[in-house]
Every structure is written in C-alpha cells, then in structure tokens.
Computed example of a mutant assay.
Amino acid sequence: MTAGDSYNRLDDDDYPAYTMGRAAEMLGTTQNFLRALGEARLITPLRSQGGHRRYSRYQLRIAARARELVDQGTSIEAACRIVILEDQLEEAQRINEELRAAGASHPADA
C-alpha cells in the first residue's frame, strides 16, 4: 500500500477506521449499545486481525440514527427496523432520480 492509498481511505465512508471504544465515544453511547446493533443485524462491523470490531463512518451514521430513535423511546429492535427502511427508501429515491435523469437525457422516440 502506498501513502496515496492511505490518504484516499480518509475519504472512504466504508473504511473500518474506528475501534469499538472510539465509536462508542464518538456516538456518546456504550459499547453494549453497539453490540446490540450488531446482534440486531443493523450494522456488521469488520474485524481486525486480532478479532476486534472496527466501524466505518457510514456505520457510525447508521448507529447514530438508531441511538436517536432509542433516545426518543423507541425499542432497539424497532429503531433498527426503522433505520433499515429509511436507508432502503433513500436508495430507492436515488435510483429513481438516476432513472429520471437518464430518461430526460434520452427521450423515447414518439
């Protein structure tokens, strides 16, 4: 790996850069909360060679949204389901927008 590769990872939302302790600290939550999100299959952290959990920025955003819902009184299971559905909706809207843009640039022959 070159130095350039290392710098590129700083911008990679999927790069597992954060330890469980650091992730919990950044989210203002506990390591047990992060474990619970893993057990609910909302996020699946990657494992280091030593077996330690590592989280990406994308996973931390997902965990932060789940924490927000739990803090509002939603059960962790329901919060995970809500976050999954929100993520699926966002992806569907993105795809729809791409298809609309492609259709506008290539109108059907009349």
Rank of each mutant, 00 (worst) to 15 (best):
Q31H: 08
A102G: 08
M20Y: 07
D109K: 09
P45V: 10
Q72I: 01
L60Q: 00
P45R: 13
Q49K: 10
I62K: 09
R65M: 08
A36D: 00
R54T: 09
E90C: 08
M1H: 08
D11L: 09
F33M: 05
N8G: 04
G21A: 14
E77Y: 01
A17H: 04
L60P: 01
L99S: 11
S75H: 02
A92Q: 15
T2K: 10
I82M: 06
I84L: 09
Y15M: 08
S48A: 11
N8V: 04
R94S: 13
G28A: 11
Y55D: 06
E91M: 14
Y15P: 02
A92V: 11
A24H: 04
G51W: 12
P16L: 01
Q49R: 13
R81S: 12
L89V: 11
C80W: 00
Y15K: 11
D71V: 01
G28R: 11
Y58G: 05
L27D: 00
G28T: 12
G73S: 09
N8E: 02
A92E: 14
L10W: 08
L99D: 10
G50Q: 15
A79M: 02
L10D: 07
L27K: 04
M20N: 11
S75A: 06
A102W: 13
D11F: 14
T19L: 12
A108T: 07
T30H: 02
D13V: 10
G38M: 03
M1N: 07
P107N: 09
L85W: 10
G38V: 04
E98F: 01
Q59D: 09
Q93D: 13
Y55L: 06
E98I: 11
D71G: 06
R9P: 00
L46W: 10
L10Y: 13
L46K: 15
A78I: 00
Y58S: 12
R100V: 10
A101Q: 11
G50C: 09
P45W: 14
A101H: 13
M20T: 13
L34Q: 05
A24M: 02
L99M: 15
D12G: 05
A17K: 13
R100Q: 12
Y18K: 07
S56K: 09
E68P: 06
A40K: 00
M20K: 14
P45A: 14
I82P: 05
N96R: 15
R41T: 04
E90H: 08
L34F: 08
A63N: 04
E68N: 08
D13L: 15
R67F: 00
T30A: 04
R22W: 11
R22P: 01
A64S: 10
R65S: 00
Q31E: 03
I84P: 01
M26P: 02
R22A: 12
G28W: 12
Y15N: 04
G50Y: 14
R57E: 05
A66G: 03
Q49Y: 07
